[in-house]
Design a protein around this nucleic acid. Structure first.
Length: 591
DNA sequence: TTAGGGTTAG
């Protein structure tokens, strides 16, 4: 039998690796194992077999295969079985076959700390955080103290679960066990505190870490970027360079995203020679996607799409984020046909399948361009269950087109999927309000009260000398309120003389016209713009960040003001950037 | 044999 021959005389390595790719080769492996079993004295076989097993395990793609291997392992009695079982455990965890993995783990003899760590890692990687904590606790109770390998997983778990108290307890234990100076443990702790909003502890960890390596710096830059503190992230980036560290692609991806967030890619790119895109040391999918998304959110859809085809020419495979950015570019410009084209590209892509967010983006594009029915049919034909986000996109468009009938139908779906989300309640109430159905508005308001759903208060902010000034509607408490309202009055007069009329229909309350006008006039966007005009040097654009979507009256007003004062006004709302200049907006009134 | 950082729509 040739198999036996191979087995006995050590098959060449290439053959061993080859042995695992097809059905026939599976049969080969099975025969090989049969030989092992039937051999009365198999002393030389294990070394050959182990490599086979490991090789097969590392390439296995299904539970069925792994179960088969497990069976073989159980019937083969040899000395290195423990290490193979560990390999098997890792393979199961990689495939997220948690119940089977757990069963195997429980059956394994004398688990070592290493093995416990592998199990915790498996749960963390599968994002099953509560179980991860459970295993960590069990590990303790069973007498295996966690070590410097365990902690990064556990801290990450606390971060994900927003377990502030648990995180503190873990930190205490880390100090007690003396692993607090481990760089990796410190990195995770710092991320945890930063994400909890405890910047004092995060800064303390940062300042007291002597040897900050690149990943350590990147971690904090990333957290600031994710928390919307682009300014702090960029400061940190400059400090890092001052200290002589060379940024890598991860640093640059964060920094690029910060520039996009600050609203001026051009300006952002000049911040430092490192981030001019063409000179970027590492151009990978992430940096391309970031750039495409940056252009998309700034309304430069053509540039975004051009960048996408350029990326394609360079032979890089777009990933799901790239496509999301591309679809978002189409959606911001109302490019329906292009959107359909790119969505089809995802369907055709080998390793990609459209996710919920792609569907939501597509629904938004279709519906907001007026194809409400097509959007509805698109949802009903989805191969995966639509979530509140997908229906919500359609609901938003129903508000824009004041389609109450469809809106009501969609509202039911949205509320059944996300009963406690305040933004959807507000959308629904807006649909009724814009149709003047005040009784229904009141009903939704009562529902919100009953469910303790709170409406998010809208506010706008402007940064001045590193300090963020926040304005709420009709705010009078700012030290400059007097000047702000006076300037607003003047601007309002001027705008009216040039043809501006307050769009009172956006005031979704039952009140008199005059009252509506006065409500409109004190919207937080307008206050923030006036504050910016008073305080920012004339050469700088007025940058306003709004937490919700900009109101359409403020949008019109901003266009007028940009023409009157001859300055650029940039408003970044929850959805995108609006660049107002000479009486026009970059969104071309489609948003 | 194990560990830390990245892009994301509405």
């Amino acid at each position: 039998m040739p198999f036996v021959l191979f087995a006995r005389h050590q098959a060449p390595l290439s053959l061993r690796v080859l042995c695992i790719t097809s059905q026939a080769q599976w049969r080969f492996l099975a025969s090989l194992c049969t030989c092992v079993l039937s051999d009365a004295d198999p002393p030389q076989l294990p070394s050959l077999d182990k490599e086979h097993f490991v090789s097969v395990l590392r390439r296995s793609g299904s539970l069925r295969q792994l179960k088969k291997i497990h069976g073989l392992l159980l019937t083969t009695g040899y000395s290195r079985k423990d290490s193979l079982l560990t390999e098997l455990l890792e393979a199961l965890l990689r495939l997220k076959e948690m119940p089977y993995a757990r069963q195997l783990f429980d059956e394994m003899r004398k688990p070592r700390t290493y093995l416990w760590n592998i199990l915790v890692r498996g749960y963390v990687r599968s994002e099953i955080y509560v179980e991860a904590l459970g295993v960590y606790g069990l590990m303790h109770r069973t007498g295996f103290p966690p070590d410097n390998f365990t902690f990064p997983f556990v801290i990450k778990t606390c971060t994900q679960l927003s377990a502030v108290w648990g995180g503190l307890q873990v930190h205490t234990l880390i100090v007690k066990l003396g692993v607090e100076f481990d760089t990796i443990v410190r990195t995770e702790l710092m991320i945890m505190y930063a994400k909890f909003g405890n910047s004092i502890s995060a800064d303390y960890l940062f300042d007291t870490t002597g040897d900050k390596d690149l990943i350590f710096w990147n971690a904090l830059i990333a957290v600031y970027q994710q928390n919307g503190r682009a300014d702090k992230a960029l400061d940190l980036f400059r400090r890092m360079e001052d200290e002589g560290l060379v940024p890598d692609s991860v640093t640059l991806a964060c920094v690029l995203s910060c520039c996009a967030y600050l609203g001026s890619l051009e300006m952002g790119m000049q911040i430092d020679r490192q981030i001019v895109f063409v000179e970027m040391p590492v151009r990978n999918v992430v940096s391309w996607s970031t750039m495409i998304g940056g252009y998309a959110v700034n309304g430069e859809s053509n540039k975004a799409l051009a960048l996408f085809s350029e990326m394609h020419k360079e032979g890089l495979q777009p990933n799901h984020v790239t496509f999301l950015s591309v679809l978002s570019a189409c959606s911001h410009a109302g490019l329906v046909n292009e959107g359909r084209y790119y969505f089809n590209l995802i369907l055709k892509a080998d390793k990609l399948r459209p996710r919920l967010e792609h569907y939501a983006c597509m629904v938004d594009l279709l519906a907001r361009s007026g194809h409400l029915e097509e959007a509805y049919n698109f949802i009903t034909r989805m191969p995966i269950d639509p979530d509140a986000g997908v229906w919500g996109a359609l609901l938003g468009a129903c508000t824009v087109y004041q389609n109450i009938e469809l809106g009501q139908q969609v509202a039911d779906k949205v509320l059944s999927l996300a009963p406690d989300a305040s933004s959807y309640h507000v959308l629904i109430s807006n649909i009724y309000a814009s149709a003047g159905r005040w009784e229904d508005v009141e009903r939704v308001r009562k529902q919100m009260e009953e469910k303790y759903v709170k409406k998010v208060a809208s506010y706008s902010s402007v940064e001045l000398n590193g300090k963020i000034h926040v304005f709420h509607r009709a705010e009078m408490s700012h030290s400059q309120s007097g000047r702000i309202y006076k300037l607003l009055e003047e601007l309002m007069r001027c705008a009216r003389s040039k043809g501006y009329t307050p769009k009172t229909s956006v005031v979704l309350h039952d009140m008199e016209e005059e009252e509506k006008e006065s409500v409109l006039g004190t919207h937080s966007e307008k206050l923030a713009i006036a504050f910016g005009l008073i305080n920012l040097p004339p050469e700088l654009p007025i940058r306003v960040i709004k937490n919700l979507r900009i109101c359409s009256d403020c949008h019109t007003f901003s266009k007028f003001v940009s023409g009157i004062v001859g300055r650029e006004i940039v408003i970044r709302d929850k959805i995108r950037f609006h660049h107002f200049q000479n009486g026009d907006c970059s969104c071309k009134d489609f948003w």
